[in-house]
Design a protein around this nucleic acid. Structure first.
Lengths: 114, 114
DNA sequence: TTGACATATGAACAGATGATCATGTGTTAA
DNA sequence: TTAACACATGATCATCTGTTCATATGTCAA
């Protein structure tokens, strides 16, 4: 971690603060999740899926986007293991991969609505 | 909310899912917070400030960015009420505005590290 | 008042990203 | 096998965003 060669005003605090910054892998995972939820279209999808599983076409209606746009967003959410899917004939149903994100959002809503 | 005029496969679930989507104000606040934390540079700043208050120059050292870049990011975090500051002579100290974001991040870290 | 320091800010540029459109893939029914 | 449906994906483009550089602001000491 030999990054900063700049001037530092408060050495002790700086060292402590650096220790508190997550390692790069954790940092990446965190920013990935936050970024996934930072777009209204994706956040709509995720909050919708918090109630029940939905197919792509339903998600398009729910979020008010095109099916193509939703499909692109779902790919991002899939890659981040935020959603999973199952195919039933021609229809693909999506749902949240686990309840982590769900509780994360509900906690965030509490914060926001204070 | 007269948005979707598209085909819908599962009407009941769609209606329920739409009800579960936060109103636009809440949605905006949520995406704002998540977006603020979705950039490595800003997340570093926020996690650093979770330990103690720091001046801009310290934050530059901690996050490994230039002071100008940090200052720009701090402006964003300031506008979102995520950080506040106090001036002491020439130095400006930043700290988290409240502990909401702090607990949000610690919870997220738990999720990520499972 | 002058200079040095700490920070803020505006302009500009490069890279990232979301939506759209066109097309491809997988499934079912006829 | 063909057509229709549900979805996925690649290419493109306009927009957004983070960093850098130059410059401005605010504070203090001399």
């Amino acid at each position: 971690m030999d990054q900063c060669q700049e001037k530092v005003l408060h050495q002790a605090q700086v060292e402590q603060a650096i220790k508190n910054i997550p390692d790069s892998v954790t940092l990446q995972s965190l920013t990935d999740i936050f970024k996934a939820l930072s777009e209204p279209s994706r956040l709509k999808i995720v909050t919708a899926l918090a109630t029940c599983e939905l197919c792509v076409c339903d998600l398009a209606a729910v979020s008010g986007s095109s099916e193509s746009a939703v499909s692109h967003q779902l790919r991002i959410l899939r890659n981040l293991k935020i959603v999973r899917y199952r195919r039933e004939g021609k229809i693909v149903f999506y749902r949240l991969d686990d309840d982590h994100v769900k509780s994360l959002i509900s906690q965030s809503i509490q914060h926001v609505q204070e």
